[in-house]
Measured scan of single mutants.
Amino acid sequence: NQESVVAAVLIPINTALTVGMMTTRVVSPTGAPAEDIPRLISMQVNQVVPMGTTLMPDMVKGYAP
């Protein structure tokens, strides 16, 4: 099972992602793949992402898996 990126903390809208904001988990439906964490760092979210929420590609500005 592939791990997806999950918010480790509450991420406010327009916040640039840091490694400490993200964790990985096997979830369904799958979100952004765990191996993309290095690409996701410094990208901004376009909505509030509550802690424990799977990071879906459409939540991150300019990100395409």
Results as ranks from 00 to 15, higher is better:
57 P>I: 08
61 K>M: 12
61 K>N: 13
56 M>N: 04
56 M>E: 03
4 S>K: 01
41 I>K: 04
31 G>W: 04
37 I>T: 04
62 G>P: 05
17 L>V: 05
10 L>A: 06
47 Q>C: 14
12 P>Y: 09
54 T>Y: 06
19 V>L: 15
64 A>N: 13
45 V>L: 07
49 V>M: 02
24 T>L: 10
11 I>F: 00
5 V>S: 03
48 V>M: 15
1 N>M: 13
46 N>W: 09
10 L>E: 12
63 Y>P: 00
22 M>K: 06
18 T>E: 12
6 V>I: 13
39 R>L: 11
6 V>G: 00
38 P>C: 12
19 V>Q: 13
29 P>C: 08
20 G>L: 13
42 S>I: 08
57 P>D: 01
37 I>E: 03
53 T>E: 11
11 I>D: 02
25 R>Y: 07
41 I>E: 04
42 S>G: 15
20 G>T: 14
37 I>R: 01
21 M>S: 06
3 E>H: 12
33 P>G: 00
19 V>Y: 15
55 L>Y: 05
61 K>G: 06
34 A>Y: 04
3 E>G: 11
17 L>Q: 00
2 Q>I: 14
18 T>D: 07
33 P>L: 09
56 M>V: 03
20 G>H: 14
49 V>S: 00
9 V>F: 06
37 I>W: 04
33 P>R: 07
50 P>L: 10
8 A>I: 08
62 G>K: 01
49 V>H: 02
43 M>E: 02
6 V>N: 00
30 T>H: 15
56 M>Q: 10
31 G>E: 01
37 I>N: 02
19 V>I: 14
45 V>W: 06
63 Y>L: 02
31 G>F: 02
48 V>S: 14
23 T>R: 08
18 T>N: 05
32 A>P: 02
2 Q>W: 12
11 I>W: 03
39 R>V: 11
49 V>A: 03
45 V>M: 03
58 D>V: 07
33 P>D: 01
45 V>D: 02
11 I>M: 00
50 P>M: 10
36 D>A: 05
52 G>S: 04
40 L>A: 01
42 S>N: 14
12 P>H: 09
13 I>P: 10
11 I>C: 06
24 T>S: 13
45 V>C: 06
23 T>W: 10
25 R>V: 08
65 P>H: 10
11 I>P: 03
44 Q>M: 13
30 T>Y: 15
38 P>L: 09
59 M>I: 02
1 N>S: 13
26 V>I: 14
65 P>D: 10
58 D>M: 10
37 I>D: 03
49 V>R: 04
47 Q>L: 08
3 E>R: 13
35 E>W: 15
31 G>S: 05
29 P>H: 04
20 G>V: 11
44 Q>G: 01
22 M>T: 07
1 N>V: 14
34 A>L: 04
51 M>L: 10
27 V>E: 06
64 A>P: 10
40 L>W: 05
58 D>T: 12
44 Q>L: 11
11 I>G: 00
55 L>W: 05
41 I>L: 11
54 T>V: 07
4 S>V: 07
25 R>K: 12
